[in-house]
Amino acid sequence: MDRTRFLVKTSAVYAFIGAFIGSHMAGGGGLELSAIHAHILVVGWLSLFAFAMFYKVFPIPKESKLALVHVWGSFIGVFGLTLGMWLYYTNPIPGLETFNTVFFIVGGTILLIAFAVFLVIAFKHGKYISED
């Protein structure tokens, strides 16, 4: 799997969704989705794009299992957090409040774990991170 390509393409999807929600809010005059809009852009677009650039700039071994866990954890975590947040705040299907809350929490937890794995990668593979 090409980590950089996967993360850049995924971040582009989130950039579009975030921009679409922002334009919808601006056109409709309501700010009800502002927290969701912000999280989609920050964790979906910016974080995934930053991770892609990290893998492009620094030669983290392609066979790194930590990197694999990080990339997939980031992908699943961003999806779970942002969709869970939307479900939690909009409650589109009455009666699923507990499910929505759990979905939101699990997505956020997976993303937090992915960030922790990134921290480990930065220190474990620190010899590859250099200005040289």
Rank of each mutant, 00 (worst) to 15 (best):
A116K: 00
E32V: 14
P92N: 06
T10Y: 08
S64Y: 05
Y55H: 12
L96K: 00
I17D: 02
P61W: 00
V13N: 02
A15E: 11
A12E: 09
L68T: 15
N91T: 14
F115H: 04
T101Y: 14
T101C: 08
A122S: 15
V8E: 07
I105V: 13
G95T: 11
K65F: 12
E131H: 15
V102W: 09
M85L: 12
N100W: 14
V8W: 11
D2S: 07
L96D: 01
K56G: 02
F79K: 02
A26H: 06
I36V: 15
A114T: 00
V57P: 13
S23A: 12
Y14Q: 05
W45I: 08
G77M: 05
P92S: 07
I60M: 08
I40F: 04
L96E: 04
A12L: 15
G108K: 04
A19W: 03
T4C: 02
T4K: 12
L68S: 14
F118G: 06
D2A: 01
G27C: 06
G84M: 11
D2H: 01
V102C: 06
I76V: 14
I17V: 10
F104T: 00
V78Q: 02
F16E: 03
F99C: 07
G73H: 05
W45Q: 02
I113D: 00
K62Y: 08
N100H: 12
F118T: 02
E63P: 01
E32T: 15
L48Y: 03
I21F: 09
S11E: 04
L66C: 10
F58V: 13
P92T: 11
S74A: 09
G126M: 06
Y89P: 08
T10D: 06
E63G: 04
L87R: 07
A15I: 08
V117P: 00
F16D: 02
V117G: 00
D2I: 02
L83K: 03
A35C: 03
S64R: 11
A67G: 04
L119K: 01
K65E: 15
E131G: 15
G126Y: 07
F79R: 01
G84A: 05
T98C: 05
V120W: 06
P59L: 08
F103T: 03
V69D: 14
V117C: 02
L41C: 10
K65R: 13
F54E: 06
G108T: 05
V78S: 03
A15R: 09
Y128L: 04
T90P: 04
H39E: 10
L112I: 05
G107E: 01
F118A: 03
I129E: 01
F103L: 08
S34D: 08
L87C: 02
S23D: 13
A35H: 10
G80A: 09
F104K: 11
F103P: 00
K65H: 08
K65W: 15
A26C: 03
V13R: 02
L66N: 13
E63D: 13
W86M: 11
K56Y: 09
F16V: 09
M25P: 00
G84T: 10
L83Y: 10
G22P: 01
G84R: 10
V69T: 05
V43T: 05
I93F: 12
Y89G: 12
F99L: 09
F58N: 10
L119S: 11
E97T: 08
V13M: 07
A35I: 10
Y55G: 09
M85P: 05
